[in-house]
Nucleic acid binder design. Structure first.
Lengths: 216, 216
DNA sequence: CCTACCGATCGGTAGG
DNA sequence: CCTACCGATCGGTAGG
């Protein structure tokens, strides 16, 4: 795992330390020591500490909003959309644990305008999942009517993954994502018969798993 | 809402500010200014800043472990235990939002031994929920076999509540707890027939809701 | 409960 | 990328 450049090494150390000790709990001197340069050298790669935080958070928010957009684009069927959304959600948070922690707990240390941007993006992410659940409920695929709370729950479940996931554990991120897709389908109360009867995109990815009778 | 004493006012301000800006992001001077005393006066009520953090976290962990113990004691039936566990979980986290945030994100700023205590308590909490799910699965009430991940998911869902809940919102904590109990029963795939057939504690609290056919 | 202060550390910069 | 340093702020204490 060769460090390609100081910029890279600094970015990686920043994510690791901000995630562990928080933005305020990490000094420029801590970062410099971790990378093996002088404190002043950090400022060759950034204009301020807050800029480092913003870089991490804005990239992360962009990533997950991209995942959400791809989930909505994958099919006209809310079942397929939910499956892809949840898969992306869990896999991203498992593979970007530090970024997830930072994005969720450290945005209060951004300047006011940036804090507002992040707040709006979080809102947009939750609302895009909520929209999937709403459409599925309208079509009669998802019997669960509390779409707002269901949406919050599914988002929170994924954030939980970012807290305990270890790539060295018994399950890969892929396997965990599959389990969480199953949890999601149960939580929204997928009606497999209703879905099989009127799916607008027959044969979409996961349609078989979503309509086949469940193993006892 | 009269402040009964400075000690009380300091404790409340500490929870509020630690939850919002983090342990390292709040200075003794911030706390003093919030309460309206001099910085030095804070030390009439505590021996150190870390002691203030420990007081909040240890009390909170004790509270939720007590909730978990009461859930296991309420009945011999895992369905009743899960219902009570989830109700307590959601209601406590809705009513102690600041403490929940602090307990979940600020324990890294405790001394090593205290950090270990909190780590063990978090483990114990998750394992007590996991034990309920395991017993329910063995008895054939809960069809979901991924009890570890289901347990993590239910804990994370509750932590989500502590992030967005407002007592001024459309739903009371009680109402939200009921919805989340429903989510939990769906996520573990409660088999209502199996439960009605062999519940070891017929007539336990919630048994009716847990066995009655679901409204369409 | 206060004023006044301790040494240490902070984010950031000057100058090379 | 470095050494050396700036003013500000930190947790905590002395002395009353």
């Amino acid at each position: 795992m060769a460090r390609r450049s100081s910029a890279d090494a600094i970015e990686r150390a920043t994510v690791r330390l901000f995630a562990k000790y928080g933005f305020v709990g990490v000094s420029i001197r801590d970062l410099a020591a971790e990378v093996g340069v002088s404190p002043a050298a950090i400022y060759n790669h950034t204009s301020s500490k807050e800029e480092m935080l913003w870089k991490i958070i804005s990239r992360t928010m962009g990533d997950i909003l991209g995942n959400a957009a791809r989930a909505e684009a994958v099919s006209a069927c809310p079942v397929a959309q939910l499956e892809v959304f949840m898969t992306n959600h869990v896999k991203y948070l498992a593979h970007h644990r530090g970024e997830a922690r930072i994005g969720n707990t450290q945005w209060r240390h951004l300047t006011d305008e940036r804090m507002q941007v992040v707040h709006d993006q979080r809102d947009q992410y939750a609302r895009s999942l909520e929209a999937i659940l709403s459409r599925g409920h309208s079509k009669g695929y998802f019997l669960q009517g509390s779409v707002k709370f269901a949406s919050f729950s599914l988002v929170a479940m994924g954030l939980g993954v970012s807290q305990w996931f270890r790539s060295t554990g018994d399950h890969s991120a892929e396997e965990i994502a599959q389990i969480y897709v199953e949890f999601a389908m149960d939580l929204v109360r997928l009606d497999r018969d209703a879905h099989a009867d009127s799916c607008p995109d027959l044969g979409h990815p996961g349609a078989e798993a979503a309509t086949a009778p469940r193993p006892a």
